[in-house]
Design a protein around this nucleic acid. Structure first.
Ligand SMILES: [Mn+2]
Ligand SMILES: [Mn+2]
Ligand SMILES: [Zn+2]
Ligand SMILES: [Zn+2]
Lengths: 142, 142
DNA sequence: TTATTAAAAGAGAATGATTCTCCAACAAGT
DNA sequence: ACTTGTTGGAGAATCATTCTCTTTTAATAA
């Protein structure tokens, strides 16, 4: 049986969530499409194999998955939320002339920043997580 | 006459925008309240001295001011936009247990990051701007 | 396997921040 | 003061998201 699906089932069970076809489909969609899709994009993709899924259900599931830390919300300046199934520490490249958002993984940078803030703390603030928003232009097509 | 208001008038004129009481009020509100307010918060504040301003007008003005780069949008995970009149380079401290967002200015860090990315570029991406989202807890009241 | 039941999904209405439309008011230059 | 393109006001419309209520179902026990 599908290896990814088994991995996803495991994750749901670990978080005490029931395994349902809808949840599997959404998590699978998010793990397959690493382009930080919107709820609408996820719905469109899922409906191909799962024509009956309700819009509200998708939003509810996304909300639960964020709460349980199986996915993350990705912030934008638009009134549309985007989602990310990659939970390993990473930053984002934001295109300044399109909606494209790509992952940026750089553990050397993470270490540099961690060292910097350990030395030079922020008064009255305890850092839990540092995320960079790198705005700019992609030089390749997509 | 009010010094801040004159400064604001100047900024509007430089951008080719007509100077109106509504625009002055909104920019003044944003420059006075550095807490990254929502449109609703701005409206509430402005209505005290300016009871007739229309909700849609505030949204339209905020949009124009963002376009003309007199203010910025501040991204959050909520379906409510927040605004910032401080255009000098700075990062944001996000409280993980409330909606509080504070500025973080650190030119030493900016230089460090600039040097880092000049040395180690990102393939196929031209960086225009780097913003850190520092998530954590504030240790003081507010 | 079947029965039980709390959790989850479906359908569609409701919400609420934001946008739009259309007309009246007005800022800025003549 | 006059003219004109720009801007503001009022309220409807939009639309992503949330809510409510009912039906279905996954997981557990008998
Ligand atoms: Mn919304
Ligand atoms: Mn919206
Ligand atoms: Zn990502
Ligand atoms: Zn700020």
């Amino acid at each position: 049986m599908n290896l990814l699906l088994n991995e996803i089932k495991q994750k749901l069970l670990e978080k005490g969530l029931k395994v349902t076809p809808q949840r599997l489909a959404i998590l699978q969609a998010l793990m397959t499409h690493k382009n930080h899709p919107t709820a609408e994009m996820i719905i469109e993709y899922i409906r191909y194999n799962h024509p009956n899924i309700a819009t509200g259900t998708v939003y509810k599931i996304l909300e639960v998955l964020v709460e349980k830390e199986l996915i993350r919300k990705v912030q934008t300046e638009k009134d549309i939320m985007r989602y990310d199934a990659i939970m390993d520490k990473h930053h984002h490249l934001y295109c300044s002339e399109s909606e494209r958002i790509e992952d940026y993984v750089d553990s050397e940078l993470d270490e540099l920043l961690e060292a910097y803030f350990i030395k030079k703390g922020i008064p009255d603030f305890k850092i839990e997580d540092i995320r960079l928003h790198l705005n700019g232009k992609f030089l390749n097509l997509e």
